[in-house]
């Protein structure tokens, strides 16, 4: 049975690193994995959408609309933008961060106030928290992505994989302990 994960956020938030570690872990557990990244042009702060699928044998690298088991959301508006990918009973892990698009910054558009409520209305289950604040507590806001990774691991019942080892092998030595800690926090949030 193929499992479908969607990661969505903004360039620079660390979605790519999170999906990379997740993929390496899934591969180590013997899954066939396919992944597809859709990103904007090279300018800063564009949308990033990563499709990740795993199972015994995966064909398409694209998560079909309406079939995502889980959305790992780094930014509220980007989760709502892609919410049609989610299964009716699908799970959203939501970082309650907002990055204003240029239209909002200039006062032309309004960031939808009820973004989170709409996500909760549509999704089967939403775990929402301020991952950046949690990361800040660890002394480095950048590990927000690893906290989110921890929540995914727990939600998708992938705890049998030796994630500490994956981190040790793929993260710069000086950040290994920090990342392990962030992962633990992520797991505890779900």
């Amino acid at each position: 049975m193929t499992k479908n994960v969607l990661l969505t956020g903004i360039g620079g938030q660390g979605t790519i690193t999170a999906s990379k570690l997740l993929t390496i872990g899934l591969m180590s557990a013997g899954y066939d994995v396919k992944m597809s990244e859709v990103h904007g042009m090279s300018q800063r702060e564009g949308q990033v959408l990563t499709h990740l699928r795993y199972g015994d044998k995966v064909y398409s690298p694209v998560v079909p609309m309406g079939e995502a088991d889980i959305i790992m959301g780094f930014e509220e508006l980007e989760v709502l933008r892609n919410i049609d990918y989610l299964k009716p009973d699908g799970v959203v892990v939501l970082n309650t961060a907002r990055f204003n698009p240029i239209g909002v910054l200039s006062g032309k558009d309004t960031y939808p106030e009820n973004t989170k409520e709409l996500i909760e209305k549509r999704a089967g289950k939403v775990y929402s928290f301020d991952a950046t604040a949690e990361a800040q507590k660890l002394g480095n806001p950048k590990v927000m992505n690893i906290i989110l990774l921890g929540t995914i691991i727990k939600s998708m019942q992938l705890e049998d994989i030796d994630w500490d080892k994956i981190i040790e092998e793929n993260v710069k030595p000086q950040f290994v302990e920090l990342n392990k800690e962030a992962l633990k926090i992520g797991k505890s949030l779900v």
């Binding site: 904007g40 042009m41 300018q43 564009g46 949308q47 309406g66 508006l77 980007e78 709502l80 933008r81 919410i83 049609d84 698009p101 240029i102 239209g103 909002v104 558009d109 309004t110 960031y111 939808p112 009820n114 973004t115 709409l118 209305k121 549509r122």
Partner: peptide, 15 residues
């Protein structure tokens, strides 16, 4: 199935 309520409030994130 499209979640219309999301479409109604969605704004663009233009490059």
């Amino acid at each position: 199935p499209i979640f219309d309520e999301a479409k109604d409030v969605m704004i663009n994130r233009a490059p």
